[in-house]
């Protein structure tokens, strides 16, 4: 996966709680691999039924069309386990989602693909969302920095908020490492486990040939 170190970019506020993976990537919007996931992301919020854009939707408005960061409400990514939701965000250009909390499967999927989920407090998150929403009117770029090397978010006013990431997740993201390599490195332990477990729980090991 692509490493994540420091990302500076436009951040779009989507302060609705419980944004689910059906909203991010609706099933009915096509499952073919040829569908451009970035284009269909938030399909039902972004487009009318005739395919025209809904101008009010945040990601249809400049400068948020170029967002690299989403700032969202609590429990982001709840619902279906579909990893397409993460792929769609990445394909659109989103590298990081900042929210007060994430659904468990989404967070795992995000880590596996180099999309950084950043948890900050609900009040800080709400304040950041408001500041971003007002930034264009105030004539300033709604741009922030997410620094994984130092584990801080640099806000519009230059203040920094720190966040936590599990050490091994951080290391993997910084270097762009895939977890499968770590797992396959333990193959002999898996084989030994199965040998022993087969004695104790033989009914688990089906013989279907």
């Amino acid at each position: 996966m692509e490493p994540f170190t420091v990302v500076t970019g436009v951040a779009a506020p989507m302060m609705i709680p419980n944004i689910n993976t059906d909203a991010i990537t609706p099933m009915a919007a096509g499952r073919s691999t040829s569908v451009d996931l970035g284009k269909m992301m938030f399909n039902n919020w972004r487009y009318n039924l005739d395919g025209s854009e809904i101008p009010e939707f945040i990601l249809n408005r400049p400068p948020f069309r170029q967002s690299q960061i989403l700032v969202a409400g609590a429990n982001f990514g709840c619902g279906s386990s579909r990893e397409r939701a993460v792929w769609a965000l990445l394909r659109f250009g989103i590298r990081c989602v900042i929210a007060p909390s994430f659904a468990d499967i989404f967070r795992e999927n995000a880590y596996q693909n180099g999309l950084l989920p950043v948890v900050i407090g609900a009040d800080d998150c709400a304040a950041l969302g408001t500041a971003l929403a007002h930034a264009p009117k105030d004539g300033c770029e709604p741009q922030i920095t997410v620094d994984l090397e130092r584990c801080v978010v640099r806000l519009l006013d230059g203040r920094e908020l720190s966040f936590d990431v599990p050490a091994e997740r951080r290391a993997a993201l910084l270097q762009g490492l895939d977890e499968i390599d770590v797992i396959l490195g333990m193959e002999s332990a898996i084989a030994n486990f199965q040998k022993m477990d087969r004695e104790q729980h033989p009914w688990i090991y089906l013989d279907r040939a």
Binding site: S81, R82, E83, I105, N113, I183, L184
Partner: peptide
């Protein structure tokens, strides 16, 4: 429990998950 597609690949390849 439910997993994402990358983890599906992990299980196919290793029959184990982190």
């Amino acid at each position: 429990w439910g997993i994402g597609t990358t983890e599906v690949m992990h299980v196919i390849a290793a029959q184990a998950l982190l």
